[in-house]
Every structure is written in structure tokens, then in C-alpha cells.
Amino acid sequence: MSDPRIWRQLRRHKVAVASMVLFGVAAAVCFLAPWLTPYEFDAIDLSRIRQPPSRDHWLGTDDLGRDLWTRILFGGQISLLIGLISAAVGTGVGTLVGAVAGFFGGRTDALLMRLTDVAYSIPSLPLLIVLASFTQSAFMMIAVIIGLLSWMTTARVVRSEVLSIREMPYVEAARSVGARNRRIIWRHVLPNALGPIVVGGTLAVGNALIVESSLSYLGLGVQPPTPTWGNMLRDAQSTMATEPWLTIFPGLAILLVVLAVNFIGDGLQDALDPRVRSE
């Protein structure tokens, strides 16, 4: 990332730049929430329940009279952190497992890939219920758990990339000048597999937001009254027809963030590949 040419190329990717701005603004707004809204996220006002957007309540209020704008900002803090942390955990574990399996092959590969198959085939629901009972729904733990439930796809993708990269002549050339396995994986193999890793990572951010909301639905996610975009969406589903703003705005927030992260990933993928960069 130290190479200034990476930034130069990234800046050329207009959509990615716009997405980075959007993501930056969204994150800033969420984390500056206490200064951007006069309300508390859990301040119940039963005299003003289910109000449509108005001057006092920009995005309306929910069925307990809580200000939706405030809840989206505070919920965003948690949702964004869960998204980023779990994507980092999932992508990190998946990349490690995939790289080791693909690079060393043989029994190591067989063992790790069967482990991956097993992890895939374990229904995540019972596992989540067990895990959640130990974690008291601390959002950090939830982020890590979501990450640990989603590394398998990355592991498979990275493994197949590494399987072909390790046969490249430059890997043999690196070996011929005395590079050790760890260095070959770190400097020669993984940088060449970065494209799919980055794409997988950005997709994982969006996925984590969704998984968090389904966890909330089961009462295993972040507990009320603390808002997340996921649990706000879930709470709104019974009133979708009568108070559509309760569904639309959290949904829009998820949509925008997921889109932005995907575009950023797209731009990064191009910027990190020097062959694309020069053209």
C-alpha cells in the first residue's frame, strides 16, 4: 500500500472514489451521532409513535416513538463495526486455511479441506445458539462469531487460486534463490491472489450485516434496545405496509453501505494489480 501508484490508480476508478467518500461520510455521521441528533436512541416517547418523516423527526418514529434517524446513526456504529470486523476475521481465517491447504497440498490439503467441508455442513443455527449462550450477545463476540461462520467460501476460493499460482515459474524462481516457504506464500503467492481475496472480503461485509439481522431475529444478536440496521429491519417487518419508512430507511442504509464496499473492493482489485495499473 506504500506505493503511490496504487492511490493514483484507485483515484482513476471514479465509482470507487465516490464509494469511498460515501462510506467515509456514512461512518463519520454514525460515529458523530451524539452531536448530530438531539434524541437518545432509546428515548421512548409514547405520545409520538409511528410518525411519518417530519421536521422534528426527519425519518419518522417507530412503534415506541423513538426517533428513526437517531437509531439509524447509532445502529450504524454497531452494524459497520460488525460488518468490518467479521469480514476481516472471516477473510483472514479463510485466506490462511486456503493458502496453507493450496500451497502445501497432499495431506495438509486433504485435512484442511475436509475441515472446511465439515464447517460448511454444520448447520449454523444450532451452533449459533450454543455460542450465543456463552457470549451474552456482546457485539464484538457476535462479529467474531459471524466471521468464524463465513470463512469457508474464502478458504475454497483462495485454495484454488493458490493451487495454480504455486505452479507459476516465478514461484520456482523464488525457490531457486533460496526463499523459504513462509516468504514464498507471503510475498509471492498471496499478493497474486489478492483480487479474489479482496472481492470475497467486500462481499463478506454485506453478508455480515444480513447475518447479524437474522441473528437478531432469533434474539441472539445485539439485544434491544441497542439498535442495529439488522434488528431495526426485523422489527419493522410487521408494519411494512402501514409504516413503510421503518423498513425503507434501514434497508437503504444497508444497501448503500454494501454497494459502496463492493465498489471499493472493485477499485482496490484493479489498483492492486500492477498489470492493470499501467494501462
Binding site: 516465478y170 523464488a174 531457486s176 533460496g178
Partner: peptide
Amino acid sequence: RGRRIAMVFQDPMTSLNPVM
């Protein structure tokens, strides 16, 4: 390897790491 005995390979187009 590379210290006492070194090797130059056949195909220079693919023997260098493209991202380094």
C-alpha cells in the same frame, strides 16, 4: 540456493513475480 548455485530459467516472461 541462489548463494552457491543459482539458476536462470527458460521463460523470463513468467519467471518474475508480476506484482513485485
